[in-house]
């Protein structure tokens, strides 16, 4: 956990101008390390989605800098940016994640195909990615034959297939019940334990608690953070009586 995969430096994002200007982000700095899962919490309208979109190159900051794997996203043209996103960054949204006419394996393989990999190879990689997450049984199913939680876990597999190591997840458990939501978080946690990095927006404290660190946003400003965790060995000493 020493290499920062994502770096935000003094990022501001203002929508509109003059009297209509909305300062969605104001001077936000944040690093996400390799293998780290960071959760972002905050009231509605505090800038969480804006933060995620800027970090993932879907939106550009008004000032400040977003760097992924050492590449300053602001220095890239539209085409290069699209390529960086395809190769390094995966997104998981609240819903509408998977393409309905493709099977799970085809959905997961899609980013690889878009990046020029041959369909057969892409499909094989996709199956492996599903397998690692315990989703092998779902490979040939279509989204409408999967539960919401299963779809979201497949979406995480897709977000992190191939060379991608950074996943942005915006309320990925939003439409799910508590147990199903938790399965999604466990999958995300596992991928980060295996070396990926994640930035997760959630309203649920119990879900944010799967992250290494929680950052609180209010009115576009980071107001607090939990800091990084201690080792599990120390935790047992203070755990509830066993």
């Amino acid at each position: 956990m020493t290499v920062p995969v994502l770096v935000l430096e003094d990022v501001s994002r203002t929508h509109g101008t003059g009297d209509n200007a909305v300062h969605a982000l104001r001077g936000v700095s944040l690093e996400v390390m390799e293998g780290e899962l960071v959760a972002v919490m905050g009231p509605s309208g505090s800038g969480k989605s804006t933060l995620l979109n800027v970090a993932g190159g879907l939106d550009r900051p008004t000032s400040g800098r977003a760097t992924v794997d050492g590449v300053d996203l602001g220095s890239l043209g539209a085409k290069e940016l699209a390529r960086v996103r395809r190769r390094r960054i995966g997104f998981v949204f609240q819903d509408y994640n998977l393409i309905p006419s493709l099977t799970a394996a085809e959905n997961v393989g899609l980013p690889l195909e878009l990046d020029g990999m041959r369909p057969r190879t892409a499909r094989r990689n996709a199956r492996h990615a599903l397998d690692v997450l315990g989703l092998a049984d779902l490979a040939d199913r279509y989204p409408d034959a999967m539960s919401g939680g299963q779809q979201q876990r497949v979406a995480i597999a897709r977000a992190l297939v191939g060379t991608r190591r950074l996943v942005m997840a915006d309320e990925p458990t939003g439409a799910l019940d508590t147990t199903t939501g938790e399965e999604v978080l466990r999958v995300l946690r596992k991928r980060c334990d295996d070396g990926a990095s994640g930035l997760l927006v959630t309203h649920e404290a119990r879900h944010a608690a799967w992250a290494d660190r929680v950052v609180f946003l209010r009115d576009g400003v980071v107001v607090d953070t939990t800091g990084s965790p201690r080792e599990p060995e120390d935790l047992l000493d203070e755990a509830p009586a066993r």
Partner: peptide, 17 residues
Amino acid sequence: QTQRTATLRHLRDLTRL
């Protein structure tokens, strides 16, 4: 806010266990 951060830290520790 101070309390929430502390409780989330606690929640995270419990979640790791």
